[in-house]
Design a protein around this nucleic acid. Structure first.
Ligand SMILES: [Mn+2]
Ligand SMILES: [Mn+2]
Ligand SMILES: [Mn+2]
Ligand SMILES: [Mn+2]
Lengths: 219, 219
DNA sequence: GTATTGAATTAGACAAAACTAATTACTTAT
DNA sequence: ATAAGTAATTAGTTTTGTCTAATTCAATAC
């Protein structure tokens, strides 16, 4: 059965939340989608009806196998399109999210496969996030948050957890991108802010909100 | 103001009908979109309200300048995406229409321009239809229908008027594509069917429905 | 000129996806 | 244990875009 634009967005959101929270609450979904909780509960009941999720107040929303398949398919398309926009159309990485948000809903049997081949079967999207395989396997990479590093540790930027335009613009301004080397020079106890060196340039101070959203590959 | 998916489809349809009929009747729109006339009249009133068209029973629907701009923008995107799908993703020309039908509604300031550049600023889509410029200028080419040719006249296929899958499949089967040379060997008086030679191969008989939908460039 | 047909229009209904406002159910903090 | 605050839920609306069925209008056909 064909899924609507909106159903697909809900499934995707539930998937994402489930990766960082132990319970996918109604409130969390409402926050991410910027929808009213009353709207959200209606949709959850609809998705439950279609057996794409289970839901109850205490357990929260949980994707069924079918539901997860749909979610991963949307995420796959989203990330492939992001690669296309950056690699082929020369968009900046902070500009592509809202376009991929639309493109991920284009329906066609062959499209994802053909696009994937055209792009050379990329493993990561422009934000460093892994692209699920067509069979729905999501590769996992053991990355560490910058905020978890201790003084004098170092790593290479593998991905970012926040893909909002303001955050990505801030990173650009810091001259920080995927692959940048980061060394922790100092970490302040009182607010967890860090002094870091990016690719050997002058040390800069960054907040814990920033360091929480950078994922590093540790050598 | 942002236009909805549906509004865009109506404007595009009105544009297309206006190119082949002197009056864009409610009935004609309903037929093309396969919508009920009652639905169509509602939408026409809405488009009139927004000053994208004028409409009354006798005149039919007529695009305003703003309405035509929107229509041409959608058509431009539709045809650019078709080029992308055929040239870059290796789709067959008969497979791309329903995907472009979705892609044409992706909204982004820079997208059409970037896509156009990436594709090398093509002048025609895979069906031979001209791609409107970004300023909304639609290039016009003086093509003649195959059905208008007389015996012994010849021409090169410039575009097709029907882009339905059955028609395009039929053309493929005939080994007929854009650029194919067609010579008229015979024309039957009673049903206007023709005997033609395609690129020098064995003569074939085709119906008037077929010859009405092939546009030729005459040498 | 009246009958028949087809086109345009009206009225009322419906599904999808959102909303507001009010209510109920849980969790904390005092 | 009670009050306060947060989360979940209900009830009732709204907007968008569609539909069916009934009606009116207009163009032939005889
Ligand atoms: Mn989306
Ligand atoms: Mn991404
Ligand atoms: Mn369309
Ligand atoms: Mn086309």
């Amino acid at each position: 059965m064909k899924k609507t634009y909106s159903e697909e967005n809900y499934l995707k959101t539930i998937y994402h939340i489930s990766k960082s929270e132990s319970k996918v609450s109604l409130k969390a979904i409402a926050d991410v989608l910027e929808n009213n909780p009353a709207s959200v509960i209606d949709m959850l009941r609809k998705l439950k009806e279609k057996e794409l999720i289970t839901y109850d107040k205490t357990q929260g929303a949980i994707l069924t196998v079918t539901g997860e398949t749909v979610a991963l398919d949307i995420i796959r398309k989203h990330r492939l399109w992001e690669v296309f926009l950056v690699e082929k159309l020369n968009y900046d990485w902070h500009e592509v999210h809202h376009i991929a948000e639309q493109l991920e809903h284009i329906h066609d049997e062959q499209l994802a496969k053909k696009l994937d081949d055209f792009l050379g079967n990329p493993a990561f999207d422009p934000h460093g996030d892994p692209i699920p395989a067509s069979n729905g396997q999501m590769p996992v990479y053991a990355n560490k948050r910058l905020s978890e590093l201790k003084i004098n540790q170092a790593g290479k930027v593998g991905s970012v957890r926040d893909t909002s335009t303001p955050f990505l613009k801030y990173l650009k301004q810091l001259n920080l991108g995927l692959g940048s080397k980061i060394e922790v020079i100092d970490k302040l106890d009182f607010d967890q802010s860090m002094v870091i060196v990016i690719d050997g340039s002058a040390p800069k101070t960054v907040s814990s909100k920033m360091t929480d959203n950078i994922l590093l590959i540790i050598d």
